[in-house]
């Protein structure tokens, strides 16, 4: 590994000041797991890493309010997985984390780092997009919110400026929302997935009031499947309507071909797994959520 400088500022302000948008060699660092892999592969050769792990502890907090759960960007994936609030109110998120990488990586990797990495194969971006999460981005003297689709702009690309940091992710609570995520691996179980499908359904009585269907891994960024969403609106979710929406998803998706499958094969995977994910999301029972 090429030598570099590693700085551990004690405050977010100091971290923001240490970043230099004019110098691509200066990079922020969260848990450093994905970052070290890229450095080992020679994909990333930073001259200075600004580690965020010693900034104010409040950036690790998981806070519930009446209308949202807000997770600090420095929260480890394990702390989110084990959070009682998350398990009660966002069980699909806790379930998804159980199969994300492994225990050791989850102990170290952070939510902010995961999102800023923008690897298209990751599980959380499509799931958080389905949950309508917004990402709080802090710059020097400025703050903005971005949806996942606004944050992740392409293959390992985000709209973060060189002197901006993710500080929190806000997940709005919704009454009667069921959610599910399916990761489809076509080689070994622990390989990166060929596709990830996230679904969030808001129920109104026995019908779907609003649906979000988000595809990951098979495309260069988390992508909402709008035709599938439209096909679900107002329907009573059952095998037939799930199949119709899954057909719409397979028709509209533009999966890419790679070692994990041809585009045609992934299209069929989308057809099968959108249907299954819809049925799972419909049966999802958030323990603490208000049911109508």
């Amino acid at each position: 590994m090429t030598p570099f400088e590693l700085i551990e500022p004690r405050t977010l302000d100091e971290a923001l000041r240490l970043l230099d948008p004019a110098d691509p060699g200066v990079r922020p660092a969260g848990g450093c797991t994905a970052l070290m892999l890229m450095m080992k592969a020679g994909m990333l050769v930073p001259t200075r890493l600004v580690s965020l792990r010693r900034i104010e502890p409040r950036y690790r907090d998981i806070v519930a309010s009446d209308d949202a759960i807000t997770i600090g960007a420095n929260a480890s994936l394990a702390s989110i997985e084990h959070s009682a609030r998350v398990r009660d109110e966002l069980p699909a998120l806790a379930r998804t984390l159980r199969t994300l990488a492994n225990v050791r990586v989850r102990n170290v990797a952070t939510l902010g780092g995961n999102l800023a990495h923008a690897d298209p194969h990751m599980d959380l971006p499509p799931l958080l997009a389905a949950l309508d999460a917004s990402v709080q981005v802090q710059g020097r003297g400025s703050s903005r919110y971005a949806s996942i689709e606004q944050l992740i702009s392409g293959y390992y690309e985000t709209t973060l400026a060189g002197d901006e940091l993710i500080v929190a992710v806000r997940i709005p609570k919704r009454a009667a929302r069921g959610c599910a995520y399916r990761k489809v691996t076509t080689r070994s179980a622990d390989d990166w997935p060929a596709l990830g499908i996230a679904v969030a359904l808001e129920r109104e009585g026995e019908r779907v009031r609003a649906a979000r269907v988000v595809l990951g891994a098979a495309v260069d960024r988390p992508t909402r499947l709008l035709a599938a969403e439209a096909a679900l609106q107002g329907t009573r979710l059952d095998e037939t309507s799930a199949r119709r929406a899954a057909d719409a998803a397979a028709d509209e998706a533009r999966p890419s071909e790679d070692a994990r499958g041809s585009a045609a094969y992934k299209r069929e995977l989308i057809r099968v797994h959108v249907r299954r994910t819809l049925l799972e999301a419909w049966c999802d029972e958030p323990v603490g959520a208000v049911r109508q």
Partner: peptide
């Protein structure tokens, strides 16, 4: 493996298991 997948480099830091190959020694 050098990629955090195999667990051969497991150590515990402040009570948490981590992959030693994906953890900077200065930390």
């Amino acid at each position: 493996c050098g990629q955090g997948l195999c667990g051969c480099c497991t150590v515990r830091v402040d009570g948490l298991a981590v992959s030693g190959c994906l953890y900077f020694a200065v930390q």
